[in-house]
């Protein structure tokens, strides 16, 4: 892609793709050309399972502002869950 700004992380979870639920193994986060959102560049998140092929993908394309908002929201929810003693399997 044109910026080549991309990072991958290993994750555990499930995602609902075109063929239903599947196990997630990786998340690919890039700031590059999106496929759908009408922006030249977007913060793209692909939740994938590489072992299951290219179609095992849950895709999200966000504006920069939305991506920052998502980040803050996740942090806020995790902080509340932690404060309440609800977090499971946190290492």
């Amino acid at each position: 892609m044109c910026t080549m700004i991309v990072q991958q992380a290993e994750i555990d979870g499930s995602g609902k793709g075109a063929k239903g639920w599947f196990t997630l193994r990786q998340v690919n986060v890039s700031y590059d050309h999106p496929y759908h959102v009408p922006l030249e560049h977007a913060l793209n998140i692909d939740f994938v399972n590489e072992a299951e092929g290219a179609g095992a993908r849950v895709a999200v394309e966000l504006s920069v502002e939305s991506a920052r908002q998502l980040l803050q929201t996740i942090q806020a929810v995790l902080a509340r869950a932690e404060a309440g003693g609800y977090l499971e399997g946190d290492t």
């Binding site: 991309v6 690919n28 890039s30 590059d32 496929y35 994938v48 092929g53 290219a54 179609g55 993908r57």
Partner: peptide, 19 residues
């Protein structure tokens, strides 16, 4: 060489791999 699927899914895979 990166496998087959919809052009978007394959393109996203290549994007994640840095082209």
């Amino acid at each position: 060489r990166d496998g087959h699927g919809t052009p978007e899914d394959v393109g996203a895979k290549v994007r994640a791999a840095g082209g």
